[in-house]
C-alpha cells in the first residue's frame, strides 16, 4: 500500500479545523497524523474523534515525521506556529487571515522561503465551484474588462477569542475583508492601491468592530467595495453570505458563492433554515494542500496571496481611524 501523506492539525481554536479535518478524512492518500491543542479537553476530544494522537504542545507534534501542518490557532499565533513549522521543514496551511500585521506576514513568508517549504493560505472560497466558474467566465472575456466589483461577506458574529483584538487582530474588518479582497485581487489581476473604510461596533455591543464597508481601488483603476459586517443575527437562515456583483464592459456577473441552498421548515422545533447542498470549497482547499505536501508544488493560493489580502484589512483600520483614504502598505519580500 502506498504511504499516506501525514498531516498534523495545530489547534482547534478556529472552528474551521473541524471541517478541514473532516475533509482530510475523505482524502485517500492523506491521514491526520496528530492533533496539537493547548486546550487539553478540546484536543483529546478531537484526537479521539479523528482517531489520532493528541499533543498538548505543538512543538512536540512538529518533531514527528509529518509532511505538513494545518494551523488553526488564533490569528495572533499564526506567525509563531507557522515559523516553527517551517523551521522543522513542514509545509504549512494557515487559516485566514494570514497574519495580523505586516511584520508577522513577512516573517512567515521568509521562514517558508528559507526552509524551502510551501506556505498556503486557507481561502476555501478559491475552491468554491461558483467562484471558480466566475473566474473562468471572466478569463474567457465573457463580461469584457472588469470595471468594478461590489462584494458582500455577511455572517454571524463569532465568539471567544474572535472578539479579542489582541488575539484576532481586529473584528469583522480583519475577519471578513480578506475573503473578498483575495478573490477580487485574483479576478482583477492587479494590486491594491487605496483603501477607505467606515466601520464600528454598531450591532452586537461586543466592544469590537462588527460592521464595516471597505472601499478599495486597484493599481489599474478598477474600484470595489467590500461589506465585511457580521450583519446576520442569530436566526438568519444561512451562514455565511459571499456575494459579488462584477460589472464588466460587456456584461455583469452576479456571484452568490453560498446561495446553493434549500429551505427546511421544521415544525417540531419551530425553525426555518437554509442548508447548502453544494460543497463550500473546504474539500478542494484541503485536497490542494495534500497535493502541495505530496509534490512540493506551488500552492494554488499562496501565503503571499493571504498577506496581500490582509494588507487591505490593515489599511482599512488605518483609514477608519484617520477618516481618510490610505495608500496600501505592501509587504516587502
Amino acid at each position: 500500500m502506498k504511504e499516506k501523506v501525514k498531516i498534523g492539525i495545530i489547534s482547534f481554536e478556529h472552528m474551521h479545523a473541524l471541517s478541514y479535518s473532516k475533509a482530510l478524512c475523505n482524502i485517500e492518500d492523506a491521514e491526520i497524523a496528530g492533533i496539537a491543542d493547548a486546550d487539553e479537553f478540546r484536543g483529546t476530544q478531537m484526537a479521539a474523534e479523528f482517531n489520532t494522537k493528541y499533543y498538548k504542545y505543538y512543538k512536540e507534534l512538529l518533531e514527528t515525521d509529518l509532511t505538513g501542518v494545518v494551523v488553526c490557532t488564533n490569528n495572533k499565533m499564526h506567525c509563531q506556529v507557522s515559523v516553527d513549522a517551517a523551521n522543522k521543514g513542514k509545509h504549512v496551511l494557515v487559516e485566514k487571515p494570514f497574519a495580523v500585521d505586516i511584520e508577522s506576514a513577512e516573517k512567515m513568508l521568509k521562514a517558508a522561503e528559507d526552509n524551502k517549504i510551501k506556505i498556503m493560505t486557507a481561502f476555501p472560497m478559491r475552491f468554491n465551484s461558483n467562484v471558480l466558474e466566475a473566474k473562468k467566465l471572466i478569463d474567457a472575456g465573457e463580461i469584457g474588462d472588469i470595471l468594478c466589483i461590489i462584494g458582500i461577506n455577511h455572517g454571524k458574529i463569532p465568539s471567544g477569542w474572535f472578539l479579542d483584538p489582541t488575539l484576532a487582530g481586529g473584528g469583522c474588518v480583519m475577519d471578513h475583508t480578506v475573503h473578498l479582497s483575495d478573490l477580487m485581487r485574483w479576478f482583477v489581476n492587479s494590486e491594491y492601491k487605496k483603501v477607505y473604510c467606515e466601520c464600528g461596533n454598531l450591532i452586537h455591543n461586543k466592544n469590537i468592530d462588527d460592521c464595516g464597508i471597505v472601499n478599495v481601488e486597484f493599481e489599474n483603476g478598477v474600484f470595489a467595495s467590500i461589506d465585511c459586517s457580521w450583519a446576520h443575527h442569530k436566526n438568519y437562515t444561512i451562514w455565511p453570505q459571499v456575494d459579488m456583483e462584477i460589472i464588466g464592459t460587456k456584461g455583469v456577473l452576479e456571484v452568490k458563492a453560498c446561495a446553493q441552498t434549500e429551505r427546511i421548515y421544521n415544525a417540531k422545533e419551530e425553525t426555518v433554515g437554509d442548508v447548502a447542498w453544494n460543497e463550500s470549497g473546504d474539500e478542494g482547499l484541503i485536497r490542494e494542500f495534500v497535493d502541495v505536501c505530496k509534490t512540493g508544488k506551488n500552492p494554488f493560493v499562496s501565503g503571499l496571496d493571504g498577506a496581500k489580502a490582509m494588507e487591505v484589512a490593515l489599511a482599512a483600520y488605518q483609514s477608519a481611524a484617520a477618516c481618510r483614504t490610505v495608500e496600501v502598505e505592501h509587504i516587502q519580500i
Binding site: Y196, E198, I213, N215, S225, T249
Partner: peptide, 9 residues
C-alpha cells in the same frame, strides 16, 4: 463608454 456604476458609503 455608455456605462456608469457608483457606490457611496
Amino acid at each position: 463608454k455608455e456605462q456608469d456604476h457608483c457606490v457611496a458609503t
